[in-house]
Design a protein around this nucleic acid. Structure first.
Lengths: 211, 211
DNA sequence: CCTTTCGTACTTACACCGTAAGTACCTCAT
DNA sequence: ATGAGGTACTTACGGTGTAAGTACGAAAGG
């Protein structure tokens, strides 16, 4: 006996939203295909019509969350604009406490993620940051916001599919800031770590001496 | 048929070491009780004689890794001492790329972890940091080193067992620095986030203007 | 109108997972 | 020699992700 009610038709969006709901309510560990199916009153395997698999489901969730961050209106000097984005990102993370951990565990880079980085880079560039300093800044914020340790431009962790998508996006002129800054820089994880650490130590020393 | 070779007797230490070996070789996701049993030429259930369960196994691994960080000799001014510890921590994380993700997913606080924080706090205190600034500094470094977003003193995420262990440790005089700084401060996640973010923005602005 | 096509959802099955409960064997103190 | 205690093994249960195959509704072509 099959009862196909058209009004509750499954879509990728609906599946992803339901997944977020389950994760919010019962934690991300409780989110399984079967559990998600129950939420949508559907068998687990039906979800595979809208999602390639569990990995794709999790990537989709991340994508959805990041998309909601990116659409902040930006006005003011670079600090205000960056701050607005950071606070928006944090707001999302607070609303979904499991999101940060999920984000760090995903290695796929989506179009949405590239766009997000591109917009950050754009802000720094307009403010007169050198390419190198922009690079440092993005890494530092990435670590701060998402706990990302291995990073965006580290192609070792990046699937070739994602790399291809990035190249395609750049050719289409989608990531103008990224295209301008990216190619000229060789990424060195140690350098980024040292930069961030010294910046923090400097800041602390200044706070100590100041007060 | 049972063959108990005494020379290869299982111990908790040997189990944990083997688990780290498997994680290094095949990734932390591939680490299952059965896989670990195979590594040690033992059935999965035998591991339960030395480890309470998988959670205890993972907590044990984290404990082992942190223990290796903490034993840095410390000399010089506060910056050098803190830097030495941070670099040691990072070194461990680099050697075991899965460790950072594992650390953020664990919520248990072990004696080893308390000791580590205590030693950091001690360094800041000796350098004349106010209690409040010490608090900020520890949070900032925690986020930087481990990607910890919800934090040490956030008792909401802390099991009562761990809280009891902390109190006991303090009474035994094990965490002198922690005992001095901890009680007087109310933790506010938003304040910590803002402090860290502004410190970073200040640092970036200075770098921009300076160069 | 009937029929074909296509997409969606369901069913079954498999190999994995963590672990509770019960059993066989070795080692060591008595 | 014998009992106690610990270590490892066996079996079993309910969970997981997902490959393969099946039933049905709805839309398109004749």
């Amino acid at each position: 006996m099959y009862a196909y009610a058209v009004s509750t038709q499954l879509t990728r969006e609906r599946v992803l939203r339901a997944a977020i709901r389950v994760a919010d309510r019962e934690g991300v560990d409780a989110l399984s295909m079967r559990r998600l199916g129950r939420e949508l009153r559907v068998e687990a395997m039906s979800l595979y019509n809208h999602v390639r698999g569990k990995d794709d489901l999790l990537d989709g969730i991340v994508d959805l969350l990041v998309k909601e961050i990116g659409s902040q209106p930006s006005a003011g000097d670079w600090r205000e604009r960056i701050r607005a984005r950071c606070i928006a990102a944090r707001e999302r993370m607070r609303r979904h406490p499991w999101a940060a951990r999920l984000l760090t565990s995903r290695t796929r880079m989506s179009e949405t993620l590239w766009e997000f980085w591109d917009s950050l880079i754009g802000i720094f560039q307009e403010a007169g940051f050198s390419d190198e300093l922009t690079h440092h800044a993005v890494h530092l914020l990435g670590a701060r916001l998402f706990g990302l340790t291995q990073e965006v431009f580290d192609e070792s962790g990046m699937q070739s599919k994602d790399a291809a998508a990035l190249v395609r996006g750049i050719q289409l002129g989608r990531y103008p800031a990224l295209a301008r800054v990216g190619p000229g820089l060789r990424h060195d994880d140690d350098v980024e770590f040292a930069f961030g650490l010294e910046l923090i130590l400097d800041g602390l020393e200044r706070a100590r001496a100041g007060a």
